[in-house]
Design a binder for these strands. Structure first.
Lengths: 224, 224, 224, 224
DNA sequence: AATGAATGAGCCTTCATTCAT
DNA sequence: GATGAATGAAGGCTCATTCAT
């Protein structure tokens, strides 16, 4: 009796992917059960196994899907941002990242998956690194390099990037605690996130500039 | 047959606590089974129930133990650091925190537990907040306040503290990914951590000073 | 290896229900383990969870099944008994009830479940009351009312019904003791139960009639 | 550290017996854990094993104690009741039994233990039968015999006794259900129990007299 | 192409019991 | 005379996975 009240024009496979992406991004690989996914997708319990062989298989496909979506999206906005000065690009990147990470209504799976896998990796971590993290590092490394006035092999690039990225991801990762310590009723509204982004931007820009003024340290041979 | 290869002079209860602290800090509450703990401690499966009633009971006691150790430790070093100027205190705090978070040979459960609970809270989260996070926030809020030349109710204090703390914790949280992307054989040796700490210090000090130069924004009524 | 010695034409779900009904009725909810049930039904340990979610879920379904069987059965015999005078209906009811309670070869789960839940209620007690006890009370309350020559709100109806029901159920409930005190080899054969029923009938009829001769006491507002 | 706040003049052994009697009578052998008993008695968890070898050993001793108390008590009141006519003795017996069974503040362990073991026997059942049930049967058999005008080997004696006893015990056994179906706030107050007893007495007296008027059936060879 | 049914491994917990002191 | 510590058996439950259709 497949007459569930869910969209039935989309094939089960796609429905599973959509539902799983949302659930995985929100609660993490281990905290989501196959039952939940199938139930939410109006599919049979064995559907995951049938279509993706594994829970992990489904997860990897979700990651792939999220990576595609992210890259397509990032490519789009890069075009509109590229001509701006690097300071504005940094500001824009921070704002966008924080919004995608903190806004509960944003369907930004990849960012959330990266945040999760970063702290609690699954066997899909290599895929995440390859498809999600490295492209981000590449893109933003160049941006930070410009601000530092140096090249990618200068370890300060990597370190400054991590400092910026760290601040942003930390806000996402620490949400459970932050919400508990915030005044009751607090939410990450658009205004709040904007203010946060502005702070991170000012803080980071000053940090980067201070390091740019220093002599370059020896290399460390980081993997691209 | 109690001649297991574990320290047999310590009582089971303490052995359980030690083993559990290590395992919980390393893998998180949910990823550690009672069986592992008891086996590693050379104790019976029911020992946890006998001594701590619950897996959660054991965990809470571990948290309590870690909190005590941390506070004792922090109090000690505060004495030696207090007379220094706030810049040096910030540098010292960052160095120490990073060492405790990243050095694999350091038995700094509390810091690691905080990092874990921050992203993935358990029912013991309130205890962690009360015993681990709030004291830290209190201590370091004052330090940042001095650097900013403002008081604790200025939202910039909270934000700058989060930026500093965020960078540090992020290095811990992202270790699984970092190690995978680093050159083969990379480790967080003492020298590496020192360099990291120096970077975070320079970066953050510049960030804080830049914000200190700006006019104070309106308050946000955060909980102490 | 599914070639267990159990009926294999029936689906597992039904087999579980049948086995569980018998075991629950005989030994009570708490004294039966799902391992026993699954083993007796030739099913996997997780089958209960799959089909009924819970041990309690299985139990409730058993109760529901027993209620349906009982009501269907009672409805049938009511047709054949209704036209008779109330004395004969009382005699018939007592005989039937005692047979269903005491005859070991009778598959009268509901009666036995009611007897069990009456003394040792489980979370399914409300279901039992609603599905099993209330219909019985309703049906037999009217019958006793006729004999008393009064209406259902007269407390004597409730009391006399309890006296009749109490005698019957007591024979069931006290079986463990009765069998131990009876002459060796004693069994509740059909003749024995008949004799018992005749005694309870004579005893109760006289009791009811004696009370019918008395003035009606004040009401007590019992729930239907 | 034995400085618990419980009576310390009574030896642990006696304290265990008292506490256990109450708990066993109230909740039944299986529903009471050794932990509860020892905790309530302010004794060590191993105390039961030390003093009584077993949970069952403790239980048996409780039964013995309850039997002694009951027989002493019954012997006392028999003296005051004996000279009365059998009708009054029946009335008194029913009233007393119901009060001891239903009144929650009455410390009448034996009656409650009998009620429990009757439906749900433990390995101590034989002891209960010997020490608790048989004496009761003996005593009351004679009383019913007088009313019937026949001797103990007449099966009607046994049957009538069971009918009386059944009604009384049934009120106790069915309390869980009765309380659920009674009007909210209902309790077995002294007045309610009195009314109940009067009903059972009237009902039973009429029943017995009706059977007395019939010819004696053949014997059945019941065990004394 | 898809599903209902079934499975087995593993987890946390409870409890009566026993051991060593 | 008594206890703190420890044990092992058993129970209910969850979950990813697989099988037969």
């Amino acid at each position: 009796m497949p007459e569930t009240a869910v969209q039935l024009d989309v094939e089960t496979r796609q429905r599973l992917l959509n539902v799983a992406a949302e659930l995985f991004a929100e609660h993490g690989f281990n905290h989501v059960t196959i039952r939940e996914i199938c139930q939410a997708a109006g599919a049979n319990l064995a559907a995951v196994n049938y279509h993706f062989r594994d829970k992990l298989g489904l997860y990897k496909e979700v990651v792939q899907m999220a990576a595609d979506a992210m890259n397509k999206f990032k490519a789009e906005i890069l075009d509109t941002v590229e001509p701006q000065p690097p300071e504005e690009r940094l500001r824009g990147y921070i704002r966008l990242t924080l919004h995608r990470l903190l806004d509960p209504h944003q369907e930004s799976w990849m960012e959330k998956l990266i945040a999760r896998e970063t702290t609690d990796p699954t066997p899909a971590i290599d895929l995440i690194i390859e498809k999600g993290i490295k492209p981000t590092v590449e893109r933003n490394g160049r941006m930070v390099g410009e601000l530092l006035g140096t090249t990618l092999d200068d370890p300060r690039v990597w370190q400054c990037f991590l400092s910026v990225q760290g601040q942003c991801l930390f806000y996402k990762m620490s949400m459970p605690v932050t919400l508990r310590m915030a005044p009751p009723g607090f939410q990450y509204t658009s205004e709040v996130v904007d203010a946060l982004a502005e702070h991170v931007y000012q803080f980071s820009l000053a940090g980067i500039r201070a390091l740019a003024a220093q002599p370059a340290p020896p290399q460390m041979g980081w993997r691209s």
